[in-house]
Design a binder for these strands. Sequence first.
DNA 1: CGTTTTTGACCTGCGC
DNA 2: GCGCAGGTCAAAAACG
Length: 317
Amino acid sequence: MDLPWVSAPICLDLNMEFLPASKDNVEESLQSNSVDIGMKISAKDEKAVLKAELNRVARENQKLNKMLNEMKENFYNLQNQVIDLVNQAPDKEPAQSRKRKEEDRDDTKPSNGKGDCSNHVESSSSEEDSGKKQCKLPKTKISKLCVRTDPSDSSMVVKDGYQWRKYGQKVTRDNPCPRAYFKCSFAPACPVKKKVQRSAEDRSILVATYEGEHNHQSPSQADVPNGPSHCGPIASAPCSVSTRSMGPTITLDMIQPMLGPTKEVEKPPQRDVQSPEFRRFLVEKMAASLSKDPAFTEALATAISGNIIRSSPGRRW
DNA sequence: CGTTTTTGACCTGCGC
DNA sequence: GCGCAGGTCAAAAACG
């Protein structure tokens, strides 16, 4: 099914710059403020100023806490609605017999102007009555991955620990950037295919769509004895956490667990919507959705920076 | 020389 | 049935 809240790139930019809240910095700041106000401020006055500042910050924190609580409430309400929808969806969804139709709904099609990262649309597109391809891949797992890259880097390489052989490239209608088609070349019989295309909105984002399941181990995992004994569906997708020169950028890839050298991401449970795993998965989705809200991001950044300042060692407010 | 990439042609499915 | 668009094939080119 198509879950609307996962239909956009889930990229949370935490490019906020907050001062390292060291005691020295704050004191320096306060001192400079005092200088600005005037050199004649006595120690008593300074104390009063500090107290006023403290009250102001406390009020601000209260306000932010209130905002966060409201957001949490909204979030849980939304979550409940989502779970209800998920429960209802299998009954209401019309039979999608055509493969193309299926892919139009969960593919990287940028026609809706959203950013294509409907990450991990676990569409078990297993309609047995569709075309030949469905016969070859009776239970095609489709997942997506967004990777932030250098926009000037024209290569369509998504490093996911597997070896891929490019077999085609096509310019699609809705995206001026060409789409590249890859097959897994590590194992000759591996049916997994990968499509890579730059996001029409943000060309620094590569959108990789994985189809099928690897029937072999990840090359990068072959020398990892403790890795899972089997390759899950599309186990190749990495969680990309990139760092740009401007600051940290976290690209949340809501995809299946990758088994490569990078860190492991939680695999969303497939059907059991009541399971804790699925709930946690939903929570992550919702959080990602919230993170797209600039107001939320700003409030979150303020709250976090406030907490960091408060909790910095050696400080007492 | 073997492998990979490129790219135009062809195939297939869908909408009208 | 026709046109369009996405997906795949395969020959040629590039590369190591």
